[in-house]
Amino acid sequence: MNGQEHPRSSGLAVLIDADNANPAIVEGLLAEVAKFGVASVKRIYGDWTTPALGKWKAALLEHSIQPIQQFAYTSGKNATDSAMIIDAMDLLYSGDFAGFCIVSSDSDFTRLASRLRESGRQVYGFGEQKTPKPFVAACDRFIYTEIFSSREASEAAIKRKTAQELRQDAKLCHLFRQAIEAAADEDGWANLGPVGSQIAKQMPEFDPRNYGYTKLSELVEGMGLFSLSRREHGTPYIRDQRPVKKG
């Protein structure tokens, strides 16, 4: 290649651990992936000779997801995990992908996520709220898959937090104030978009839906700690209700 880097597309590789994901989430999952880019590759890994993965088969056909057969040579899920990791590295070296979506609640993918980010790729993790924190922290963004359940199931799993509950979340409040301070103008107002992005950089799993709110602006209003104003073209701005420190 004459020393030149392989041109990279904007496509995403979606790799799903069938042992650690529920087929009920697939529609919401792919809709979420579409917000980040085009899913150029969609693969799912598991032992398809076992009845346990039978529920996945209809979803695979409907959404054009390629099943990758991996026999369980020994008890446990290490064979499936290893196959995903090897494929991910092959795809990385192809140079054709701007990012990877790893769908699993298994901590075994922590090092893979770190390695992909070291190579300049975006890594989006998807897993249940039981996912170990090291894997969550290794991703650029991590989305909890409970939000992809049916509306009734989602409301039961993720109850909307009250203002009191939100205010008692010291980490959340601190991250908001820190992000506002970093992006604020001299009057203390900050564009809500960059504020949300700054919080996500420090807390990859941050998502208003985890607190029962559809939008970031709704979460801000629910907290009751910040002023919200809409400016030109309806752009939301946020300011800490505490007095602005001068000088």
Rank of each mutant, 00 (worst) to 15 (best):
Q4I: 09
Q4E: 12
E5S: 12
L12P: 10
L12E: 01
L15Q: 06
D17S: 05
A18G: 10
D19G: 10
A21P: 06
A21T: 11
A21L: 04
G28M: 06
E32G: 02
E32N: 09
V33G: 01
F36V: 00
G37L: 00
A39S: 13
K42Y: 01
R43F: 03
Y45E: 01
G46K: 03
D47N: 15
W48I: 03
W48S: 01
T49N: 14
P51G: 07
A59S: 13
H63S: 02
H63W: 09
H63I: 03
Q66T: 11
Q66P: 00
P67H: 08
P67M: 10
P67C: 11
P67Y: 05
F71M: 07
A72N: 12
A72G: 11
T74G: 11
A83H: 06
M84N: 01
M89P: 02
L92T: 07
L92I: 10
G95A: 04
G95E: 01
S105V: 03
D106F: 04
F109W: 07
L116H: 08
S119C: 12
G120P: 07
Y124Q: 00
Y124I: 04
K133L: 12
F135A: 02
A138H: 07
D140N: 15
R141A: 02
I143E: 00
S149M: 14
S149Y: 09
S154Q: 15
I158V: 15
I158F: 13
K159G: 05
K159W: 03
K161S: 15
K161A: 11
E165G: 05
E165Y: 04
L166W: 09
L166V: 11
R167F: 05
Q168N: 11
A170D: 15
K171I: 12
L172H: 14
L172F: 12
H174Y: 13
H174A: 15
L175R: 13
L175V: 08
A179L: 07
E181N: 14
A182P: 02
A190Y: 04
A190M: 10
L192E: 04
L192I: 08
L192R: 00
V195M: 05
G196W: 01
S197L: 13
K201V: 07
Q202A: 14
M203E: 04
M203C: 09
F206K: 01
N210F: 11
K215V: 00
K215N: 03
V220T: 08
R231S: 10
E232R: 13
P236H: 03
Y237W: 15
D240N: 12
D240K: 09
Q241Y: 04
V244T: 14
